[in-house]
């Protein structure tokens, strides 16, 4: 669905250079610090900004050539941009109906009311969580084959996040060709949804791995200074100095489980991976 090859975009103090692919039916997660280039990547994919180099292909087309029909097939939720605050929910309903041929009005209205988005309420009076829900519901409302979601669950409590993720899961179940590119700071959301994770830092790709490998094959090792000296370091990808010694990230958890039965080894998760790989040494 999406294919980026050496996509380049340069700003004053920042340069993006990234290759990335979202296959049909896949859910791809994008993680990284603020300013790492996640939003830039998403904007380039959506045709909001023009790249300085490389190629982007979405549905086989360069985003600059998107027609309205192409855009009807993309559902978008941006973190910092949405409908005008002076509009009411019922206005959004009519506006979406005017924009998308495949807009499912009844379901959208039903879902809004289920989630507390009253028809007569003005967006200005929405809570943060309600705004996030509106953005996601909008993206899911018109049978788009590709969803691009930038921080869709930001600002939501854990229950609301679960509800939104379930909405997304159901959406995927309806059509096995639907794919998603989702960027988020909330790693647990990505762990339960994404097939692959791309970690970017300062505009460059730091890691691209299947989620189940990240969660299953990678591991966290905690050792004291002495133990660290004796440790076989060939499968350590990252190390962080701690008060007690070192925390290390390995991509061969089993090796250390087999050979060092007495050291502390924990399951990895995306947050730990970010801390160890992107934090300062």
């Amino acid at each position: 669905m999406i294919k980026l090859e050496n996509l380049q975009k340069n700003y004053k103090n920042f340069g993006l250079n990234l290759s990335l692919e979202v296959p049909s039916g896949a859910v791809i997660g994008l993680v990284g610090k603020n300013g790492a280039g996640k939003s830039t990547t998403i904007k380039a994919i959506l045709g909001l900004i023009k790249p300085d180099g490389g190629t982007i292909s979405v549905f086989g087309k360069d985003p600059k050539d998107f027609t309205c029909a192409d855009k009807e097939n993309i559902g978008v939720a941006l973190s910092d941009s949405g409908f005008s605050l002076v509009l009411k929910t019922k206005d959004v309903v009519e506006i979406l109906a005017g924009f998308y041929h495949d807009f499912d009005k009844e379901t959208f209205i039903a879902k809004c009311e289920e989630n507390g988005l009253a028809m007569d309420k003005t967006i200005k009076d929405y809570s943060t969580g309600m705004k996030a829900k509106l953005r996601v519901l909008t993206a899911l409302s018109h049978k788009a084959k590709l969803l691009v979601l930038d921080e869709p669950t930001a600002g939501l409590d854990v229950l609301a996040r679960g509800e939104i993720l379930d909405l997304i899961r159901k959406y995927l179940e309806e059509d096995s060709e639907r794919s998603i590119l989702i960027s988020s700071h909330i790693s647990s959301d990505l762990e339960g949804l994404c097939d692959e994770i791309y970690m970017i830092d300062d505009g460059k790709l730091v890691l691209h791995e299947d989620t189940d490998v990240i969660m299953g094959k990678y591991g966290i090792i905690k050792v004291g200074t002495e133990e660290y000296e004796k440790l076989d370091k060939q499968y350590l990808i990252a190390t962080k100095k701690e008060a007690f010694g070192y925390t290390c990230l390995t991509n061969e958890k089993q090796y250390y489980l087999d050979n060092y039965p007495n050291i502390v080894i924990e399951n990895n998760d995306i947050d730990n991976m970010i801390i160890l790989m992107l934090g300062g040494k």
Binding site: A26, R169, L172, E173, S176, E191, G192, D210, T211, D212
Partner: peptide, 19 residues
């Protein structure tokens, strides 16, 4: 169950189920 349905139920990635 289909890969997608199963992964949704277990709340894990579809790729994991597929593997």
């Amino acid at each position: 169950p289909s890969v997608r349905t199963f992964s949704n139920e277990l709340k894990i990635s579809a790729l994991t189920v597929k593997k």
